[in-house]
C-alpha cells in the first residue's frame, strides 16, 4: 500500500465521515457483519460484485493504497461506532483478519 498521489483524489476519506463522528452509535458487530460490510465496501470501490471479493486476499492486492485505506477506516469507524487506528489494515491486512480483530475490539469497547 504505497502512497500514490494519483489515487488520493479518487477516494474521499475523512471528509466523508467527518460529519458523522458525533452521531456514531456504538454497536456490537459480529465478525460476519463486519466482514459483510468490508466486502460490500471493497466491491463498490473496485466496481466488482461482492461475490468476486476474496476475504483472504490482502488489501493491497485490490489496489487499496494508503489514502483509500484511510477512507475505508474512516467510514468503518462511523459505522461501527468505535475509534479505529488508521494503521489497522497494515496490521490486519485482509478482510477476514481485520473483521475478526474488530469483532473482538467491538466486544471489549461496548
Amino acid at each position: 500500500m504505497e502512497i500514490q498521489s494519483s489515487q488520493i483524489e479518487q477516494i474521499s476519506t475523512v471528509s466523508q465521515s467527518s460529519n458523522s463522528q458525533e452521531n456514531i452509535s456504538k454497536k456490537t458487530a459480529t465478525a460476519a457483519e463486519i466482514q459483510d460490510w468490508l466486502v460490500c465496501y471493497l466491491a463498490e470501490l473496485m466496481e466488482n460484485k461482492p461475490d468476486e471479493i476474496d476475504v483472504t486476499i490482502p488489501f493491497d492486492r485490490y489496489g487499496l493504497d494508503s489514502s483509500a485505506a484511510i477512507g475505508m477506516i474512516g467510514d468503518l469507524e462511523s459505522w461501527i461506532g468505535i475509534e479505529l487506528d488508521p494503521t489497522l489494515p497494515y496490521d490486519y491486512p485482509s478482510i477476514e483478519t481485520l473483521a475478526r480483530h474488530l469483532a473482538e475490539e467491538s466486544k471489549v469497547n461496548v
Partner: peptide, 30 residues
C-alpha cells in the same frame, strides 16, 4: 474535538488535518 475544530477553521481544514495525521501515522508505522 472535531465539532469545535469545524467551528474554528471549517470542515475542509479539519478533514485535511485528519487525513494528514492518518497518512503520516501510516508512514511512520510502516
Amino acid at each position: 474535538n472535531r465539532a469545535a475544530g469545524i467551528e474554528l477553521v471549517g470542515k475542509e481544514v479539519v478533514s485535511r488535518f485528519e487525513k494528514y495525521l492518518s497518512l503520516s501515522s501510516i508512514c511512520f508505522h510502516q
